[in-house]
Simulated assay, not measured.
Amino acid sequence: MSHHIYPLSHYLLLLLPLFFIIVLSAEINNSTCPSYTCGNVTIRYPFWKMDTESPTQFCGYEGFEIKCSDNGEQHNISEITLGGDNYYVQCINYDDKSMLVADYDVSSAVPGPKICPRVNHNISLGTLPLNLSTYSVNLSFHFNCSGCPSFATEIPCLDNNGRKSCLGTSTEETEEWDGYSCYEEVVTAVIDEHKKKSSNFQVDFGSVLEKGFGLQWGRTDECEKCEESDGRCGNHSTTGHICFCSDGTISKNECGGTFIITTLKFQFYPCLSILV
């Protein structure tokens, strides 16, 4: 029987995968996919709380981070950033996967009355798995116009040096506004029922904006295998997507897949705020 003697480099190559797993395990901290309370809003999967969970590793969806802030007068204000703009999170309903948000600049999170609020940006959801809820409707603000069409509502307090500010819905075609030489258009959203109940929308549109609008979320493609295997999707700066499993392990893509590390717990709490 012949015996083969391999060089030391050969054995080192065999040990490299094990070395990689050990190093990777050292870099990834154990996580409990925790839940937090910010005011009357519960923050839990697929959302995660900034300043508590590290941006290098978190349990939740990318782009679903919520900041719990203090504006000087109100404490524990939940904020989410969508398309680079801040929104005040009023409620998260985990049963129907919906959330109630308002543009931060015109929300109740900003102290003072909203007599004539100015919406400054469109709603930009990018590639996030978010859609406008069925009980919300788009509104289009048209600023610095030569006049307002008959189907639109003029907002006198936003007029500027004789130029009109008009409020319409997203159903009007762009061509219908062409004759009014508007300098700027901003599309936002409100809850349809609140708009319908407004008796004088020209004056109290600010209170309707303040009540916000609804968004619903769906599953991301990257998290499909993980969630179908009873896991919770997360991210790590070194490995990318990771899967937190209910048995305490962390896998690369799905529970029962490539093992990374152990020890997890899950906590689930109902939404503490309701849509009014």
Results as ranks from 00 to 15, higher is better:
2 S>K: 10
5 I>S: 14
6 Y>N: 11
8 L>N: 01
9 S>G: 08
13 L>K: 11
14 L>M: 07
18 L>H: 05
21 I>W: 00
23 V>A: 15
25 S>V: 09
27 E>P: 02
30 N>E: 13
32 T>N: 06
32 T>D: 09
32 T>G: 05
45 Y>N: 08
46 P>R: 01
47 F>L: 11
50 M>Q: 02
52 T>S: 13
52 T>P: 01
55 P>H: 04
58 F>D: 07
61 Y>H: 02
62 E>I: 15
63 G>A: 15
64 F>R: 09
66 I>N: 09
67 K>T: 14
71 N>I: 11
78 S>Q: 14
78 S>C: 15
82 L>P: 13
82 L>C: 10
86 N>R: 07
89 V>S: 07
90 Q>C: 03
91 C>P: 06
92 I>V: 13
93 N>Q: 08
94 Y>E: 11
94 Y>P: 15
102 A>K: 00
104 Y>A: 07
106 V>N: 03
106 V>A: 03
108 S>E: 08
109 A>G: 05
109 A>D: 03
115 I>M: 02
117 P>H: 03
118 R>G: 14
123 I>S: 04
126 G>V: 05
126 G>C: 09
128 L>K: 05
128 L>S: 09
133 S>F: 04
134 T>S: 15
138 N>C: 08
139 L>P: 12
141 F>V: 11
141 F>T: 06
141 F>P: 07
142 H>I: 08
143 F>L: 10
151 F>E: 12
152 A>N: 02
156 P>S: 03
159 D>N: 15
160 N>K: 10
161 N>F: 06
164 K>F: 07
167 L>D: 01
169 T>F: 02
172 E>Y: 08
172 E>F: 02
175 E>Q: 08
175 E>A: 13
180 Y>A: 14
183 Y>P: 11
184 E>F: 09
186 V>D: 00
187 V>D: 01
187 V>R: 03
192 D>C: 11
194 H>F: 06
197 K>M: 10
197 K>P: 05
204 D>C: 05
207 S>D: 05
211 K>V: 07
217 W>D: 13
220 T>P: 06
223 C>D: 07
223 C>L: 04
224 E>T: 11
225 K>E: 09
231 G>L: 03
232 R>W: 08
232 R>C: 13
235 N>Q: 13
236 H>W: 03
239 T>C: 05
240 G>K: 07
241 H>M: 15
241 H>G: 11
242 I>N: 01
242 I>T: 07
247 D>Y: 00
248 G>S: 08
249 T>H: 05
251 S>A: 15
251 S>K: 00
252 K>M: 10
255 C>V: 13
256 G>P: 05
259 F>C: 10
259 F>M: 09
259 F>L: 09
260 I>K: 00
262 T>D: 11
263 T>Y: 01
264 L>S: 10
266 F>K: 14
268 F>K: 04
268 F>M: 00
269 Y>C: 08
270 P>Q: 12
270 P>V: 07
270 P>Y: 01
272 L>Q: 10
